[in-house]
Design a binder for these strands. Sequence first.
DNA 1: ATAAACCCTTCACCGCACTACAACGTCAAG
DNA 2: CTTGACGTTGTAGTGCGGTGAAGGGTTTAT
Lengths: 139, 139
Amino acid sequence: MLIGELAEAVGLTSQTIRFYERRGLLPAPHRAANGYRAYDDSSVFRVLFIRSAQSAGLTLAEIGSIVGLRDHGDLPCTHVATLLHDKLDGVRARQAELASLEAELERLLARSRHLDPADCADSDGCHILTEPRRSGRGG
Amino acid sequence: MLIGELAEAVGLTSQTIRFYERRGLLPAPHRAANGYRAYDDSSVFRVLFIRSAQSAGLTLAEIGSIVGLRDHGDLPCTHVATLLHDKLDGVRARQAELASLEAELERLLARSRHLDPADCADSDGCHILTEPRRSGRGG
DNA sequence: ATAAACCCTTCACCGCACTACAACGTCAAG
DNA sequence: CTTGACGTTGTAGTGCGGTGAAGGGTTTAT
């Protein structure tokens, strides 16, 4: 199986396959006499595993740590569970950030609807984004 | 006002102030005879505006487009409202993505709790992340 | 023989917001 | 006169997941 065929089979480009190889996510494949990479069906599953892990929000580095355990002969399950747990924490933290950002944007948009653009003229930026300053607070 | 004093006043570093200047977010300041940048109090408000806009989730490029309108003599309010509206859309879209990622992670973690690591041995990656595909059929 | 489509390697680049470093000039204090 | 903290410029690196081009070799079809 040539690299383009593997790429086609998994819906990626050849460049991405080589990129994963460089990153250590895919083992160096056998080479034909002409130097071409030669893959078998198991490579398809390896790439699909990478994509599954990515769709679970894992970074390539984290996925690399999973394959690394495999290469070392260890079972990665415990490590994977830890990664997923940490990732879930991170997702929830970012959800909280986005929720407060959403509230802030809604507040600013409500402001913008009852502010008169004519009052904006003297400001450095725009009065929608800067509080009518009483005592300083940024951020 | 020296650059370090401005930086101190707004809680940033001198490098960041210069970075904003290069990005066109801050106008080129007057220079003292020795070449040092000389700021006045209005620069403090300009920087604080940038930080306010950033805390509303705007990128530096977007903030630059706001200051750009100011430089051009236009009132940025309408543009700012548009940016905030689009940003809110983006935030909600990302919230939806994160919600489904959260659900997926919860599903996988539930899987991991009733999967036996011993069954993982023959896989390329880890059975927590790959659906059980029995010979031939799957999706 | 030649063109098109594939393969190879290496290197650079995208956006994002900084951050660090090199190599130098300036200024106030001791 | 030296020390140290400040200032100047330009360039490069960070993390993330690729993408693209340069410049070449191989294979297949005509």
